[in-house]
Computed example of a mutant assay.
Amino acid sequence: MKLSRYLLVGMVLTSSFLAVPTASAATGWQVDLAEPAAGSTNVETGPVRLGSDDNRAASADSAARTGMAVYPHTLATAANAFTATVTSTVPDGAEVAVDVRGRAAGRWTEWAEIRPGAPGVLTGAAKDVEVRVVLSAPDGVASPTVDALTITPAAGQRAPAPQPGLTYRVFATREGLVGHTTANGHKIVARDHFVALPSRRGLSAKGAGDYSVRVCAANGRCEWAPTWDVGPWNTRDDYWAAPEVRQQWGDLPQGKPASQAAYEDGYNGGKDQFGRKVKNPAGIDLADGTFWDGLKLKNNAWVTVTYQWTGTHPHGFVDTPGPVLNVRPGPNSQSPNVGLAAKHAQVRIECVVAGEQVTGSQGTTNQWYRLAEGMFVSAAHVAYGPGASPVPTC
């Protein structure tokens, strides 16, 4: 099916999608599709199409191969809403979507889909923006292609009201799947440290942690880990979002995964978005290292999750030579381990205190960041977020 010069605002393009033709906006910019940036995975250019890697939403048990092409752009004037015009070919069963995000108040906003009838709206106005083209196709279906893409800032849009950092109690399962490739192209290894959330809105690029979580178990242990896969169960359920901007199932309470509602209440006939019977209420999947080593879990369990890219706390990114950084109950390395912070994870910083002098990727310092009550990491191993607000003293 050939789609030519259509306004595309965030809903995936499939063979059944009918869009309304529109003229290309003169104030928009034409994306150079031949030059995807860092964070792109499993795509070929000229036109943009799926590559040959086996990237999938491993945690969601999805059969669709996935590729993502990311394109940065700097605006002359900050904007918080965007529409898109696309020229593409989408075979039956394949999908194309366009997302946008911006760097506001020192950190990236969540990815916003550009949807039919409404632009993608960011939580803050930004000059530095990125556009992400997401391609997917099941086995046996040819790759969709995108030949041209124009992005246009939309005037008169109101950003969602700012919120404090979001925290919800959800059911966690162990992902496992060692040797599989995640939705962002990461090859899962033994005792790995990452999580999966059921929406690509919270998906970090391979080797990055713009979208990370703090997940805490009932035993008091916590791990900070990047989101590197999509799932469990669903792939369009950003349940942490306000109902009016949730990708699907906006009639559910904020913070309640659709899988939980299906399992507990028979919501959606007790099924996920693919029509499968939901057999547990999981709203997050944990890689083996996060599950066993970070949280010391033995079985699937209810956990408390804080979505690190939400709210306005100062923030940084774990930069350590190994896969994890020990989290201590005080500002010294002799105190026992009470959790872990995975390499690349974004961490929200409550305050800073003087303690043991440590040498790491950020030099030698006696400064320690408190990430939560009774949980500290050395500032020597945390790259402070660019443009982040100053860290207060504890």
Results as ranks from 00 to 15, higher is better:
251 D>T: 09
165 G>P: 06
303 V>S: 02
40 S>W: 03
175 E>L: 15
215 V>Y: 04
344 H>E: 05
85 T>D: 13
155 A>D: 15
338 V>P: 13
368 W>R: 06
333 S>N: 14
216 C>A: 15
61 D>H: 12
76 A>I: 05
15 S>E: 08
4 S>G: 06
385 G>S: 12
161 A>R: 13
207 G>L: 01
65 R>E: 01
306 T>I: 00
190 A>H: 12
262 A>I: 07
48 V>N: 00
326 N>M: 03
304 T>C: 04
96 V>F: 00
46 G>L: 14
71 Y>A: 02
96 V>T: 10
310 T>W: 09
214 R>A: 09
306 T>R: 14
74 T>N: 10
117 G>F: 14
198 P>F: 10
32 D>S: 12
313 H>M: 11
340 L>I: 11
206 K>L: 05
23 A>P: 04
174 R>L: 12
29 W>K: 09
64 A>H: 12
50 L>K: 10
196 A>I: 11
73 H>K: 05
243 P>K: 11
316 G>R: 03
228 W>I: 14
384 Y>G: 02
13 L>Q: 03
194 F>G: 05
359 T>F: 01
321 P>G: 08
155 A>F: 13
361 S>D: 14
342 A>D: 02
170 V>W: 02
13 L>W: 07
332 N>W: 10
204 S>N: 09
244 E>D: 15
156 G>F: 14
308 Q>R: 10
157 Q>W: 08
306 T>E: 14
7 L>H: 07
286 L>H: 08
230 V>K: 00
6 Y>D: 06
372 A>K: 02
118 A>R: 15
80 N>L: 15
174 R>F: 01
313 H>K: 12
